[in-house]
Design a protein around this nucleic acid. Structure first.
Lengths: 332, 332
DNA sequence: GTCCGATCCTAAACCGTTTTGGGTCGCGGA
DNA sequence: TCCGCGACCCAAAACGGTTTAGGATCGGAC
């Protein structure tokens, strides 16, 4: 073993087969005109020598690295990790699985608020999740001319040409709120956050509109920065609401905890729904879940990006949410 | 806008600055001897021109792509998705966050049982999760001479030299079982699976040993292939056990469901623990969790791999598990 | 016999960097 | 004056593939 220190390159294969490197390249990649017998022989020799093409060289020449970058925010603090990180993970997983169908791999590239992409890697296109205002990544990609798709409505003007993959939270919110109402809600509430991102703003707006349309009083409680979500949940329950939708799983769990503390039965006396992932097979906890279906979103991003790479005109996509109604409560 | 169709390369910067490309490369990368004023000027020109180096070319020349591959299994079927996929996601997330500290990105590369890596990308090293017997990926990496680290004991002989990152389930299982005993268990049981992988085998062995050491009768129930986990859980409860540890979250959830069905209170009349992730902030469901801490494992894999890349002798690492004791049950 | 197209193959250019091995210049010491 | 030396910079050679442009061979049609 350890036949030689150097890696075996296409030249070695050509020499061993007594052919030119062009012919070897053609034979292995199925291009050009090569006699069937020759092709077969080349493949056998390559296999015997254990030849593996240098992907960097190939990427340089062809301009394609077969890598799709996905910019994942890299904050470690507090509630963020509870709510967004799981989302990102699932998007990456969905993207990775879809990408392989198109011959690509997915590279998770951490980004920081300040510097944008933390590390430069060769990639054919980039998926940007939740772009921020004046997003340095979008600007960078535009400069470098690499195709982008964003998940979540971009806040900046001037990026009207980048394709967008979005969750259909309009329909999702309607489903959830209709569910709450059908379950008997008369005083619905929303437990939301102080952050003014597109998702929060949209959720609040949809809640307001739904309440107005249904002629119901809508209570909105924002968890202030630094405030304990459980405390906020308790103060909300004090206001006599009978159904609450939570912006994310952190807030939803806070509601469940607050309800548990004061012995309010879920979902019989208090209906709770929240945005978040939930394993449908896990024992129910009385709450309903509206899942953004991040795996589907990741997959959709990849499809749009690959279409873009292949020169097809990319189109915006909306991904339906999944509603998981409350299951049976555990332990009786 | 659209000043030119071609991307701006280092030659353009050199021309604009009236220097050679060598000097530009040195100025931008902080190598060689360049007059401070010149360096500054180059940086300014490069910024003005929006120069971004071609990473593929750089990777070809330097032999480093700054990408760490992570081979994630890509099966979609049944219980696998419930238990292993979340684990992989978290490993990838942990690896990505750690990798950026070392200037690398992490590429998730799906693998198939048959073909091994599904797509070839340039990467400096590879993390292989749960290597299988006669693993084609390990063999491929050995041929190509690219560094590997595996998570989970490799089953093959002949790979004694690849560094291993492992969960310390020996200590973890002791913690869990000691917890069950302290909570009053007298007839402990293990709900395990039919798969004969290293993790299952080890878990069963550790359970047996612990029971023998503690002079307690140990009941083992394997969920057969195709059998419903809930049915298996019920048949186990029929045997009069008072504490059960489950191999994974699927089985643990089945136990919770079975207990709920027959009105057995958890954890008062039946103690349940399981391997699996659990958000410590989520409302408790009465079960204890032993987390493999996949985020920490991903991070450890990256550290070991980077050490390997930098020529340091890589060492095996064991990552402690995290035990999350049962929280309060929801809704009272 | 010559011309032609089909078929198989080759030499060389190319992709955009990094790195090697000097080259030039000005200055101080012998 | 000449040499050595440090500081600064440059031309050209890698890196390892893919692709282009073209050369050789051969059978068949005229």
């Amino acid at each position: 073993m350890a036949t030689s220190r150097k890696r075996v390159g296409i030249r070695d294969v050509a020499a061993a087969a007594g052919l030119s490197i062009t012919t070897v390249s053609w034979a292995l990649n199925g291009k050009g005109e090569v006699a069937p017998g020759t092709r077969e022989r080349v493949q056998r020799v390559a296999r015997e020598l254990g030849y593996q093409p240098n992907e960097a060289a190939r990427a340089l020449r062809t301009g394609r690295s077969r890598i799709l970058g996905i910019a994942v925010a890299h904050r470690e603090s507090g509630p963020w990790e509870q709510t967004y990180l799981p989302y990102y993970r699932s998007v990456v997983a969905g993207a990775a699985i879809e990408a392989v169908e198109h011959g690509h791999a997915v590279a998770a590239i951490p980004v920081s608020q300040a510097r944008g992409l933390e590390v430069q890697v060769p990639c054919d296109g980039l998926i940007v999740i939740d772009p921020v205002r004046d997003d340095p990544i979008l600007a960078g990609c535009r400069r470098r001319g690499i195709p982008v798709v964003v998940d979540g409505r971009p806040l900046d003007e001037g990026f009207g040409d980048v394709p967008v993959v979005e969750s259909d939270i309009a329909t999702g919110m309607r489903t959830v709120l209709d569910h709450l109402r059908a379950a008997g809600a008369e005083r619905p509430a929303l437990l939301t956050g102080a952050e003014r991102d597109a998702y929060t703003i949209d959720t609040e707006r949809l809640f307001h509109n739904w309440c107005r349309r249904n002629d119901l009083p809508g209570t909105v409680r924002r968890v202030r920065a630094g405030e304990s979500p459980v405390a906020a949940a308790e103060s909300l329950l004090d206001r006599g609401v009978d159904a609450v939708h939570a912006l994310n799983e952190t807030y939803g769990n806070a509601l469940l905890a607050a309800a548990g503390d004061r012995g309010v039965e879920v979902p019989d006396r208090l209906r709770i729904t929240m945005m978040g992932e939930r394993d449908p097979l896990a024992p129910g906890n009385g709450a309903g879940y509206l899942s953004l279906d991040p795996v589907a979103i990741g997959a959709a991003c990849v499809r749009v990006l690959v279409a873009h790479l292949n020169g097809r005109r990319p189109e915006n996509v909306t991904v339906p949410c999944r509603f998981i109604p409350p299951g049976r409560t555990p332990a009786g």
